[in-house]
Design a protein around this nucleic acid. Sequence first.
DNA 1: TTGTATGCGTTATCAT
DNA 2: ATGATAACGCATACAA
Lengths: 375, 375
Amino acid sequence: MASPAASGARSRLRPPEVLSWRMAGGRDRAGGSLRTVPGFDHHDPGLRDVAARAGVSLSTVSRVVTGRTQVSDRLKQRVLAAVAELGYRPNAAAQALVSGRRSSIAVMARNTTRFGYAGTLQGIEEAASAAGYAVMIAVVESDDPARISAAVDQVLSHSVAGVIVIEFDDVGRATLEAVPDSLPVVAAAGAPSVERTRPHVYLDDDLGGRIATEYLLSLGHRTVHHVSIPSTRPDSGRSRGWRRALEAVGAEVPDEVPALYSPESGYGAAQSLLDDPSVTAILCGNDELAIGVARALAERGRKVPEEVSVVGFDDQPFARMWLPALTTVAQDFTELGRHAFALLEQWLRTGAVPADAVIEPRLVLRESSVPPSLG
Amino acid sequence: MASPAASGARSRLRPPEVLSWRMAGGRDRAGGSLRTVPGFDHHDPGLRDVAARAGVSLSTVSRVVTGRTQVSDRLKQRVLAAVAELGYRPNAAAQALVSGRRSSIAVMARNTTRFGYAGTLQGIEEAASAAGYAVMIAVVESDDPARISAAVDQVLSHSVAGVIVIEFDDVGRATLEAVPDSLPVVAAAGAPSVERTRPHVYLDDDLGGRIATEYLLSLGHRTVHHVSIPSTRPDSGRSRGWRRALEAVGAEVPDEVPALYSPESGYGAAQSLLDDPSVTAILCGNDELAIGVARALAERGRKVPEEVSVVGFDDQPFARMWLPALTTVAQDFTELGRHAFALLEQWLRTGAVPADAVIEPRLVLRESSVPPSLG
DNA sequence: TTGTATGCGTTATCAT
DNA sequence: ATGATAACGCATACAA
């Protein structure tokens, strides 16, 4: 099953044809040899160079640099001095090779620019770099198995310590499944793990959809319409919470209006709701959808919130400044990312598979939602 | 000069204390040895394993895998089969170590979530992964030299082929200067290189500010006010274009109102403009500032665009759906990123330092800007 | 405490 | 065309 398609294997076996920068011939370090491009035959100083400079053995340098073994203060000082003078930097590739100690992690995601994805990535990066890990990012564009497999190969080739998959959509879900469990993998998601196989840190989208819907119902709306973003799996996430909340009180469950992520998409999706007088409240899958919906409403002359309440999801920066300011379900994506890394790091450190963790959504009441009676 | 501060040297010398996953003892591959955590003593198959499986020498496998030398079809097939069966993946660390061939690049940036930064990153990632490079991201939070130095060390430790610095702000500028020129570095920026030392791909922010201002003036506004984002250097970028355009026609140059990047920041900055009747047009450093400004205006009862025209920068997705739809200077950040990588890749391939390149801004006319007479 | 020697997975050089 | 073998830079088991 993990056996990659021929094309995938092919592509992954072809590293980029990059010219080596060490254009100087042979073994002469610090060479005065002729160089095509100035400044590019530098050998970065290595343990050996530092050792020579400090007049100690290579392994002594290694010891002070890694700090794993005791070294006399006298030598330690000499080594540290040499390190500073030469500008020595450990070679992570060599370290990984010899010790198996990996100092980078990978983040796999379908997208890195949309609000939630970018925020999660930021949280991960923040926590990872604070812990001394480098972050490699791999965007998986489609759920084409060959593409996914290529991305996974790319990541695994670079011997990362672990992987965090952003599983906000079906591509993320497929990616998560494609990563072999020969290394620690945690998911940053919108719902807990279904198969209970990989640890998940998740925003409770289901709960978010539920509280938003319950709030709208509590305002007096007979039902709540819903313009949705694509979901990770059928009947999951925000839409599921919306549906459950409606069903729980026996309210009518209107057809879900599926959209994508963009404002335009929301604008288009809203068309089907514009002329229906029973539409007094619309829950949108994200804030961008919400402003598209709001514009469509306004163009049709239906006032927000007097005639129709609109609620978003995410609490993007513009939501607070919108006219009217947008009621929305705030999500702490950055915290999600930080927490995902924390789990991974714990796994790495202890060797024990961590448990799922959840980040609670928070309903932020603003101007775009009011009781229907005001219409 | 490149000699790092003591603290910097210290931190960079301490790799994360990660447990090795090869918990199995000794040299026994494919071991049935006891494992603390199931599935984690796997040795990934190596050239040696493939060679054994295919019944050829290690170097033959290497040759078919790299494709650099001729191998008979018969052996090639055997090797390919073994590769597929074993799920062999080349070890990038070992490749980099022995051949100096690097298969990853690094992106250094102050931020990865804001629109322009995220878009640029996306473009880079897209192009890089298409070319077979992995992308490592390093966020540089402040211009504290120690932080910058630590980030640079982190990146260089991982033997990247080259670096792209997103130079949209002063931290980016400092970062660019901190990266040694022992490897190829290109900047993705908002203006051309000043010192002409490192190749720049840039969005012409100066031009963007100019065309937006000229447009507003052409509408009949006596002058244009300006709420600005932080700039890379004094009198640079968008603000500079604005100022130049005003000066060029002898229009009054109002005090620049400095802000940050957020809508709230724009809202706050706008306060000083609210009661000034001479304010009929406001150019904002980005779209988020623009909506903050617009809200402040609305709260004070000044209608947009009838009384005050508002123009943004970037063309974020919400700009088109704003009420009124936002006139703005569109920037192709993704293209900027793609182009930055293209330059780096060219440099890597040819060894020749590439020339600067520019991405033109584009003024998008929408509803938020009208002639002042309409007020 | 310090130094010497071995090998991590791969490419490249040298034979064959 | 193919197979041995020597590095690459580093951590570590072992010797001193």
